[in-house]
């Protein structure tokens, strides 16, 4: 309520002098209630997105303020979802701003009992080394087929799982790189 000390702000006065004699509405309003606006009204920008959970493809509006996601809700313009979301889609803000999200690389040494830190650049270098090494070690030019040895030009040492939650562009680059690498044991959720 207005600071009781400023006599004029006292709601009781508004109640007695105004139309809200029982003090159940207009007289009882606080300044905060008068100034109240939705946080999305002050967003820096609204970005068009799509829910990451299931394949219905509900369109989402992502409100951003000061580089942070402040709200994710359905986009009424979508002919598929008409602005609606399910419980998972409605929890998208919590998904992307979850405090338990990992934001640092974790590394586990062989036989170790716990994680340790590792900076990302080094980690990707180490992974690249391992890919090249494992590819070389398990490279196979030919394999026995029903009609004798046939050229296969591949490695069975490297496998990959994943992508139904990923973008088409990501799946494309992964398949392109793996294929050029000769890795063929590539799979994703289409199989489970």
């Amino acid at each position: 309520m207005a600071d009781p000390r400023t006599f004029l702000g006292w709601p009781l006065l508004r109640q007695v002098t105004g139309a809200d004699r029982l003090g159940r509405g207009h007289a009882a309003r606080s300044e905060r209630s008068d100034r109240l606006t939705p946080r999305t009204a002050s967003a820096d920008r609204v970005v068009d997105s799509v829910c990451p959970f299931c394949a219905v493809g509900c369109a989402q509006k992502v409100f951003v303020k000061d580089g942070e996601v402040i709200q994710i809700e359905g986009n009424p313009a979508s002919p598929i979802s008409r602005g609606r979301l399910c419980p998972k889609g409605s929890a998208s803000k919590q998904l992307v701003t979850s405090p338990t999200r990992v934001t640092k690389v974790r590394y586990r040494r062989p036989y170790a009992t716990d994680w340790e830190d590792l900076d990302r650049d080094t980690a990707i270098d180490m992974i690249a080394d391992r890919v090249v090494e494992t590819r070389r070690k398990y490279w196979e030019w030919e394999a026995d087929g029903p009609d004798g040895r046939r050229r296969t030009r591949r490695t069975l040492g490297i496998a990959s799982l994943g992508g139904a939650t990923l973008d088409n562009e990501e799946n494309y680059l992964m398949k392109k790189l793996y294929t050029a690498m000769g890795a063929i044991q590539i799979e994703n959720q289409a199989r489970i």
């Binding site: 309520m1 009781p4 006292w10 709601p11 009781l12 109640q15 029982l22 003090g23 159940r24 007289a27 009882a28």
Partner: peptide
Amino acid sequence: FLNMLRVLKPTSPLS
């Protein structure tokens, strides 16, 4: 507690 005297509501015995 002072908010108790913000308004006088006859519909509220506590007020």
